[in-house]
Amino acid sequence: MPDHDTYDRLISLLDSSGVGYTFIDHEPEGTTEAVSALRGHPVSEAAKCIVLRVKVDRRTTRHVLAVVPGDRRVDLDAVKTLFAARYVGFSDAGTAERLARAVPGTVLPFSFDPALELVADPDVVAQPRLYFNAARLDRSLSLAGADYERVARPRVARVAVPAGV
């Protein structure tokens, strides 16, 4: 079950960090392509957030929040290599909602759960402006990629490939 204070927690974090951000209110939408059109920016400037299950060995499972540009997809093999894992796959919806504290389509590129490790592709943090749903389907945020990196403190690693690959 999502934690209903995720939005407030995000705003509090950004405000206390002193970063500049912009709200963008829009029709409720959770798919990257459609919400990017509503916000009026290229899909490549969106942060696509995917919760992954990473089996390091038979007894150790980690959960990773991979953040990639909106026009790309997560490279599961790259994540597997990054974590020296045996298996990487998409997390089930219940686990993803519990760890991300948000429903699908509203997952933030931030982690508020120590059990959810944050990894961002370098092309995400390099964006002059980065856009994402703010734990709500009807409101998004925009902030500089460098500010995102400073506040979210993701592990930065190449984890994205073009969508058609």
Rank of each mutant, 00 (worst) to 15 (best):
G20L: 14
L108F: 04
L13G: 04
V124A: 02
R98S: 13
I11F: 03
A157L: 05
T31G: 06
V107Q: 01
V161P: 02
Y7P: 04
I50T: 13
D3L: 13
P109F: 01
R139F: 01
S91D: 13
A115G: 06
P69A: 06
D147Q: 07
T61I: 07
K55L: 04
P109S: 10
T6P: 02
A135D: 07
F83A: 12
Y131A: 02
L10Y: 00
Y21E: 06
L99D: 00
G18F: 13
G20C: 14
E27V: 10
G30E: 09
V88G: 06
S36N: 06
A146K: 05
A163M: 14
A93I: 10
V43R: 04
A47K: 00
G30F: 09
D71I: 07
V165N: 12
P28R: 06
G94P: 01
R9I: 11
L130N: 13
A93C: 07
P69L: 11
D57H: 08
D71G: 15
A78M: 07
G105F: 09
D75T: 05
A152T: 04
V151F: 11
V56Q: 02
D8F: 10
G70W: 01
V103I: 13
T61Y: 06
V119H: 05
G89N: 10
A134F: 00
E29A: 12
L141G: 04
Y21C: 10
F132V: 01
A144L: 09
G94S: 08
P128Q: 09
I50N: 02
L82H: 03
V68G: 01
L130R: 13
A46K: 00
R73G: 12
G89I: 09
V88D: 04
E97H: 12
D147E: 15
S91N: 11
R98T: 12
R158G: 02
R59S: 11
G89S: 10
D25P: 09
V51P: 03
L52Y: 06
T81S: 14
A160M: 12
Y7D: 05
V54C: 08
V88W: 03
A146I: 12
A160T: 07
D5R: 11
R62W: 11
E33I: 07
E149S: 15
D92R: 08
T60R: 10
S142H: 00
G30W: 09
